[in-house]
Design a protein around this nucleic acid. Structure first.
Lengths: 121, 121
DNA sequence: CAGCATCCATTATGATACTG
DNA sequence: CAGTATCATAATGGATGCTG
């Protein structure tokens, strides 16, 4: 099932922000859409090695409901759906940049591996 | 039980960063310790309305293991334990600031309530 | 192509009672 | 005071098969 609508009130801004980016692939989806502007379902799937169709669908639906992602459906055969960032999604991506920097630096310090797929947040 | 050590490799910096802040109260713990420098267990508990002792303990232990928080135990009766941020914790808190701004702005736009407990991230 | 439906495993979070 | 232990539930993630 999809994400529950959230029980109590938000405690602070970080609380509210984490609520919409928490999800194994959401940061990466934001990054992909930011980097490419528009992506189709299968393109996103290929860009996120290891994601299942179910999770990708679910995350995209949640991000759409949260107003981060725009979903454009074309009435064609075969089907075609394009995803892109809304203004809110783009600004969230900006707000995440320092966090990405922090994380990358941390990974380096610890000598941990990062899956090498071009440049990543 | 505590947090699992994480299965696969990290995908990007945001992935790594979210791994250490994901937890219902971790952002707030960072903020409290940043604001006050040093806090005791019961002080943190009071600062986080609704947190259970179990969750607070668990989060503090995880943040300690992740090198974000320092735990100082005093051999006294009654017991006394003080928590504070490490350098890594302080820098993470900085990196979270834009995200907190984004979240707060979002809450305002939506006219959502934020639990009014002084200034919050 | 872009998904939805199901079943199942693992994690995360909570409430409550008890202890050094 | 600062936790542990135990018992539950909710949320998240994954595998597989099917469809317009």
């Amino acid at each position: 099932m999809a994400k529950a609508p959230r029980s109590g009130p938000y405690i602070c801004g970080i609380d509210a922000a984490l609520d919409v980016v928490s999800g194994k692939w959401k940061g990466l989806v934001l990054w992909e859409l930011h980097a490419h502007g528009v992506r189709r379902f299968a393109e996103l799937r290929r860009a996120l090695p290891g994601v299942s169709e179910k999770m990708l669908t679910q995350h995209l639906r949640e991000m759409e409901a949260d107003g981060l992602v725009h979903r454009e459906v074309y009435a064609e055969v075969p089907p075609k759906v394009e995803y892109s960032l809304t203004d809110a999604g783009a600004s969230l991506n900006e707000a995440l940049r320092p966090l990405g920097d922090w994380g990358r630096e941390r990974l380096q310090r610890q000598g941990l591996e990062v899956r090498p797929v071009a440049e990543r947040p």
